Amino acid sequence: MAIVVEHDKRKHEILEKALEVFIEEGYEDVTFQKIADRCGITRTTLYIYFKNKREIFLWSIKQLTSGIEVGLVSFIEDKKLTDEQCLRSMLKLIVDACEENKKLFSILLSYLLTLQKTGGDPGLRVRRRLVRLQHLLSTVIIRGIKKGEFKPISVKTANEMLYGLIQSAIFRLSVLDEKTIDDIRDTLNMAVDGILKVN
């Protein structure tokens, strides 16, 4: 059993260090050898864990988004929070993560454009990673409607509105190179205000 734990720990460390290399050099300039060097292992050892840099990149993104999801679930499970507080906390966590990983989103954009040029479907890739995020947002919105905290609105429309604002934040950080997205935070809070049920 200790071997499995060591293997998982090593894989996690490789992904964290690989993500640093991708952020520093960009997807196109990263090689398997550069990742191996950063991890202090040989390319042969790296092949035990991953078959190519694309797989490492996608796993690195998955590890990052999984960490965000854990934070979102902790808000949902916190019985002390109202649904309004929960939704605001979730949106803040997401936007903060976007701001903290600004450079990564630039690299991800480059990767998705390369995927598109080679005939891949970048939209499908993005949807796969974000379906859980949208499900978690929907869970809180539905719960808030049932408890009477939120207006009886279309959950799909509310989710699309919030998701669109998050996409805007990512675009402004990664493409427009904006340093802060405080106005997006304000807009998200205004969106939550708009779905609150007025007593």
Rank of each mutant, 00 (worst) to 15 (best):
Asn199Gly: 11
Ile195Arg: 01
Ala169Glu: 08
Arg172Ser: 00
Lys179Trp: 09
Glu178Asp: 02
Ile170Gly: 02
Val198Arg: 10
Lys197Leu: 09
Glu178His: 01
Thr187Val: 15
Leu188Glu: 11
Val175Arg: 12
Asn199His: 06
Ile170Asp: 03
Asp186Leu: 15
Thr187Cys: 13
Val192Trp: 03
Phe171Ile: 10
Ile170Asn: 03
Ile195Gln: 02
Thr180Glu: 12
Arg172Gly: 00
Leu176Lys: 10
Leu165Tyr: 15
Leu176His: 02
Thr180Leu: 05
Ile170His: 03
Ile184Asn: 08
Leu165Lys: 13
Glu178Phe: 01
Ile166Arg: 09
Val198Ala: 11
Gln167Tyr: 06
Asp193Ser: 10
Leu173Asn: 01
Glu178Ala: 00
Lys197Met: 06
Arg172Glu: 01
Ser174Gln: 10
Asp177Ser: 10
Gly194Lys: 11
Lys179Asp: 14
Arg185Asn: 15
Arg172His: 01
Ser168Leu: 05
Val198Lys: 14
Ser174Phe: 05
Gln167Lys: 14
Asp177Phe: 08
Leu173Gly: 01
Thr187Ser: 14
Ile195Phe: 04
Asp177Val: 06
Arg185His: 14
Leu188Gln: 12
Ser168His: 04
Asn189His: 03
Gln167Pro: 00
Asp182Asn: 14
Ile166Asn: 11
Val198Gln: 11
Arg185Glu: 15
Ser174Arg: 07
Asn199Tyr: 06
Ile184Ala: 09
Met190Asp: 10
Leu196Gln: 13
Leu176Arg: 08
Ile170Phe: 05
Asp177Thr: 06
Lys197Pro: 01
Asn199Trp: 04
Ala191Ile: 05
Met190Phe: 07
Asp193Pro: 04
Asp193Lys: 11
Asn199Val: 12
Ala169Leu: 06
Leu165Ala: 15
Ser168Phe: 12
Met190Asn: 11
Leu188Arg: 06
Asp193His: 09
Leu188His: 11
Asn199Phe: 07
Ala169Asp: 08
Lys197Ser: 04
Ile184His: 11
Leu173Ser: 02
Ser174Met: 05
Asp193Gln: 09
Ser174Thr: 07
Ile195Thr: 04
Ala169Ser: 13
Asp193Gly: 09
Glu178Val: 01
Asn189Lys: 07
Phe171Met: 05
Asp177Met: 05
Asp186Ala: 15
